[in-house]
């Protein structure tokens, strides 16, 4: 038997008539022996850091330490203002913010690991867009972060959140699944719909390898944060529309853990395979090797 199950949590929340986020908040207050208001306040502070990382990444974009990325967020935001885009303001707003935070991370800016530094763009990207578009309060966003955290806790217990252990599906896949559940609850969806959004997100990230070029958290990490944010919104919309995942979220999570363990070492954050092993990837690694301070 699994120790924690997302479906059980959703059933508990629905029986109590509360959201997954509210349930996770109550559990955390009980676990830590702290007042729920205080725990919510701490999460509100964390949200403040996330929002600031988006702002800094969009207003003062910098080149990453390895010099491979920088400024993609603002590029997309400018395009969004000037062009008849395919994805529209919601998706591209979230994606541009996710890119901005990923670049902040790669440029040694302050970020919130969510669930990891490598996947730190997805949640702030999705939540900033929703907060601005729908005028959500800090409290509502903080509660949605508890929804996201509940999903992360279940994945951590039953699969993995680490690229070295489970590939990028464990980092950006988990970040996207967490964001999808948060987006569902912010739109007024049920805990059960949040579970379907998690399942549909992880299904579409399953098998994603961790193959950072030159061992740096830059390429392809930033663009995987971008795609993760977009996928989270698509999954949330599908779930809110009433589309269900045939395979339940908990089973998808366990399957993801198994796929992660089956990945060869070369595709688990060792920079020995995938994009890191392409001719261009190797060329960049050779160029950067021992020379990064000169960039």
């Amino acid at each position: 038997m699994k120790e924690i199950s997302l479906c059980d949590m959703a059933a508990r929340a629905e029986a109590l008539g509360i959201s997954l986020g509210e349930l996770a908040l109550r559990d955390e207050a009980q676990r830590s022996g702290t007042d729920a208001e205080q725990v919510l306040e701490q999460m509100t502070e964390t949200w403040g850091v996330m929002r600031e990382s988006v702002r800094a990444g969009l207003e003062k974009p910098r080149r990453s330490r390895g010099g491979m990325i920088g400024g993609e967020g603002i590029l997309l935001k400018t395009y969004l203002g000037q062009s008849h885009s395919y994805c529209g303001e919601s998706v591209l707003g979230a994606v541009s913010a996710a890119l901005a935070v990923s670049c902040q991370n790669a440029a040694m800016g302050k970020i919130v690991a969510a669930p990891t530094a490598g996947a730190s763009g997805i949640l702030p990207g999705v939540l900033t867009m929703i907060a601005e578009r729908d005028g959500k309060s800090e409290r509502e966003i903080a509660l949605a972060l508890f929804t996201a955290a509940a999903v992360g806790l279940v994945i951590s217990a039953n699969a993995s959140l680490s690229g070295a252990a489970g590939g990028c599906q464990a980092e950006c896949g988990s970040g996207a699944a967490m964001a999808a559940a948060a987006a569902v609850e912010l739109a007024g969806g049920t805990p059960r719909q949040a579970c379907h959004a998690v399942a549909m997100t992880l299904k579409n990230q399953m098998g994603l390898v961790c193959d950072p070029v030159a061992g740096l958290v830059e390429v392809p990490c930033a663009k995987r944060n971008a795609a993760g944010a977009a996928l989270a919104l698509v999954s949330a919309d599908m779930a809110l529309a009433g589309i269900e995942s045939v395979i339940p979220a908990d089973e998808v999570i366990v399957a993801m853990g198994k796929v992660g363990r089956a990945l060869p070492e070369s595709l688990r954050e060792t920079s020995k395979g995938g994009l890191a092993a392409t001719p261009t990837g190797r060329q960049i690694a050779d160029r950067l090797g021992g020379n990064l301070s000169k960039l």
Binding site: A24, S32, T46
Partner: peptide, 14 residues
């Protein structure tokens, strides 16, 4: 596990 191990820590990247 605390939720703040999942959403957090606040840190300087990368």
């Amino acid at each position: 596990q605390s939720v703040f191990n999942i959403i957090g820590p606040v840190m300087i990247g990368p």
